[in-house]
Design a protein around this nucleic acid. Structure first.
Lengths: 217, 217, 217, 217
DNA sequence: ACTGCCGGGACGTCCCGTTCGT
DNA sequence: ACGAACGGGACGTCCCGGCAGT
């Protein structure tokens, strides 16, 4: 509520934004300091090393993931599904430099890989709920794990696709909605008719929940 | 024909490999020169500028795309499909730095984005062939373009997924085969029973064609 | 009298120790503050400038010299001799950075050179006492001043020798005793037999006086 | 003979001179580059690291010591003695920063301590020659090793003494001659009358040999 | 075609000294 | 008296690009 933000947080925010758009190696600390409006010396006071700043951004992101996981109460499967997809898309987009520039900041970032893994696990449990609720059409050949991973990949890389192939730098709600629809294009053919309807309705219920999403940029 | 490779080509190969693994900004010309086994001055003789080298790599990649497109004769839809997926996975993986480090080398690389776009167009035409051959199960709600794009994304980012989530740096045939299977996990639920069988058989016919794929690393 | 040491004094002690071991230019104020357990800002409150701290250390050392000179009552020549050597060895070792790093802190340190000079003068007067008491063997070629200076140098640099050639960082009483013995190896050949005995006995009387020496580290 | 000196050697010479006068930590690479008349970038080409430069200077000095040791033919004991003292004084003076600034460049410099040790060993063997030639006056209490070390210290630190106590920065022949005389003030009282005369004459024979000494500054 | 050498500049890091608030 | 935060500047390192020589 307070408009006063600590210098350290302003650095973290600016750093995350610049690292995302210009890359980790392509962003100089001088640029960050200038963008924040502080001196390079002061930046060094808060984050002695460039990697320290990256690690802090990384930990903040992990904290957001942890906070969501503990504060969440399960609801309708379709709502949970949409919420999960939106959250994953956003958190990965807002911290995309971490994965993109892994090679420069390898040490200490292994946990982010684990974050991806646990995100997939959570996504997979949603599919098992769908299955246990009998919403899948009968298909003896279906490998649920493979199907889940394929669809998960679409969610993970949807925004990268937008940036690379469509040249976007700013993400709007419409972009996210398209992401959900591309999800559904894969999921819905596997569902029974009532289940399809249920999931399509879930998308309409989303905007009201949008505020809960971890929107940063 | 000759086993002797020109210095320029060795530079291009080494540069592509290092740019991919260490990033464009994270790779110094001195590193490339050392990896090739030549002096930095000599590298400068062949490529006056770092960006010149990147542009050359880029053009070589485009040339590979062009060559495939002109030398290709349509075959069975299922075979063409598998071949296309493999080609796209490889060409994008082998030149992933171009998209990843767009921000540093913006000028002259827009054409690579167009290459991706035309690749999608080609992929989309395959789906239209599948449709015209009546292989799709009936589904009035299907948006073919959206479905195509979703599945295309899985192919485009499959290897990025392997690197990020599974930590792979070297790609084997098994990894590519899994990529195809994740494709099929999405495509097959939309097909009629005979079409499914046809596509599953196509995968078995692949290894013989592997040599055609643009394998580099 | 109180066991409570003022912050300023703790800074002076820590600074002297660090300047000696790591060098003046090689010791940052942040390191000193951390070693003392205070904030850099507080250090700046007590000593506005790095050189101010160095000057304070310097003055404290000079004060020790002055205090000894005024509180001292002459005794036996041999006892006075040993006491002087010990004092000189210690005071120069404990403040060795002052001479070593002269070049960085030239202003205001000329007086320390004068302190050395007057120390030599005092040492020389001891030799004149030895001479006037008829303890020197007859030697027409002896230049008393040159002899004095040579022996003085051994005392001045004994501990530097220990550090450089023997790698010592901590000085024990045994090390100082060896210093005295190396003194005697030069002095005794010039003395008469009874004088030699007298000086050798003086060394045994030392430990009781040890507390008087300016032991700091 | 040639007036053309390689850039690397000019850097080494200038670096040694500046490190000696201003200290290792107190000399910036920019200063050295400016003094040599080259760009900072070029300096980095020849010596990637400041420590690399220091190590090179160090090795050059060790090489001088090795060269002298292998090219030397023993002569009169008195001449050898004077030659050794002069050489040691010069080599330590010309590279005094190495010992003074040990703390900043600890790694890889342990060999210099060994150089000091072997220099002392050589000096000690001279004393044993003096002894075996019956030049020492009879003295049952003499500990030859202790005497040798005491006198060695005077030689090792004579020039440091000149700088610290007499404020010298440039060394002349007169300064070195005084160093020898201070040596003799300690050595001669231990010698027989003819031996004293022999050693005193040796000093007069020196200037002709001066060119052989490793004079650098 | 290839090398050694070089200049200029940028970046990450460090450090000193100051100020504000308690 | 003390600490958190800050500004400005310097230093070591690195890197790109160029040029003379062969």
């Amino acid at each position: 509520m307070s408009t006063r933000i600590s210098t350290a947080d302003r650095i973290v925010e600016t750093g995350r934004r610049l690292f995302n758009t210009r890359g980790y190696a392509g962003t100089s600390l001088a640029e960050i300091a200038a963008a924040v409006g502080i001196s390079p010396g002061n930046l060094n006071y808060h984050f002695p090393t460039k990697k320290d700043l990256a690690l802090r951004i990384h930990e903040d992101a992990r904290e957001v993931v942890r906070a969501r996981r503990s504060n969440r109460t399960p609801g309708k499967i379709s709502d949970d599904y949409v919420e999960h997809v939106l959250f994953t898309m956003n958190i990965t987009w807002n911290n995309r430099f971490i994965l993109r520039d892994q090679m420069h900041i390898t040490d200490g970032f292994s946990s982010w890989k684990e974050a991806l893994a646990s995100d997939f696990t959570e996504f997979y449990s949603l599919f098992k709920r769908i299955d246990s609720e009998g919403m899948f059409r009968h298909d003896p050949k279906r490998d649920l794990r493979v199907l889940t991973r394929s669809i998960w990949i679409v969610g993970r890389y949807w925004m990268d696709y937008l940036r690379e192939s469509e040249g976007l730098e700013e993400i709007t709600w419409a972009d996210q909605e398209r992401g959900i629809q591309h999800h559904f294009a894969l999921l819905l053919p596997c569902l029974t008719a009532p289940a399809r309807q249920e999931f399509e309705l879930a998308l309409d219920r989303v905007p009201a929940k949008l505020a809960e999403a971890a929107f940063v940029d």
